[in-house]
Computed example of a mutant assay.
Amino acid sequence: MNPEDIPSLPRGVRLHFDKIRETWVLLAPERAVTLDAVGHAVLSEVDGTRSFGEITLALSEKYNAPQEQIAADSAGFLGALRDRRFLDVTP
């Protein structure tokens, strides 16, 4: 994923707090992915307007971590979601 790419959740995909399991999930039609704290933190920043670079910068400032490391980890996570059609990416 390039720094200027803009990730967004496609129509019908949303973050949801599952009260029964007491965890965050990413819901799509007839599919769901349970998120850990890191996955939730990354997806909470995805708003469809900010670029991947802006998102990783915000996360690095929020968690006082190197942006390069956050970008590397987040790119793999978001890439996997894109491959499974849980995420759209606009170049």
Score class of each variant (00 low, 15 high):
residue 14 R to Q: 13
residue 16 H to I: 00
residue 16 H to A: 00
residue 19 K to Q: 12
residue 20 I to G: 04
residue 22 E to S: 15
residue 22 E to G: 04
residue 23 T to W: 01
residue 23 T to V: 10
residue 23 T to N: 05
residue 26 L to T: 03
residue 27 L to R: 14
residue 27 L to Q: 14
residue 27 L to C: 08
residue 28 A to C: 02
residue 29 P to K: 08
residue 30 E to L: 06
residue 30 E to Y: 00
residue 31 R to K: 15
residue 31 R to S: 03
residue 32 A to Q: 15
residue 34 T to A: 15
residue 35 L to A: 07
residue 35 L to E: 14
residue 35 L to V: 05
residue 35 L to Q: 12
residue 36 D to L: 03
residue 36 D to K: 09
residue 36 D to F: 06
residue 37 A to H: 12
residue 37 A to M: 10
residue 39 G to R: 11
residue 40 H to F: 15
residue 43 L to V: 11
residue 45 E to M: 12
residue 46 V to K: 01
residue 46 V to L: 04
residue 49 T to M: 06
residue 49 T to N: 09
residue 49 T to E: 15
residue 49 T to F: 11
residue 52 F to V: 07
residue 52 F to L: 11
residue 54 E to G: 13
residue 54 E to H: 02
residue 55 I to M: 03
residue 56 T to E: 11
residue 58 A to G: 01
residue 63 Y to H: 15
residue 63 Y to N: 09
residue 65 A to F: 12
residue 65 A to D: 00
residue 66 P to V: 12
residue 68 E to F: 08
residue 68 E to P: 01
residue 69 Q to Y: 06
residue 73 D to S: 14
residue 73 D to A: 15
residue 75 A to Y: 09
residue 75 A to K: 13
residue 75 A to P: 09
residue 77 F to A: 10
residue 78 L to A: 07
residue 78 L to W: 07
residue 78 L to Q: 05
residue 80 A to F: 10
residue 80 A to N: 11
residue 82 R to I: 02
residue 83 D to S: 15
residue 84 R to K: 15
residue 88 D to R: 00
residue 89 V to F: 01
residue 90 T to R: 15
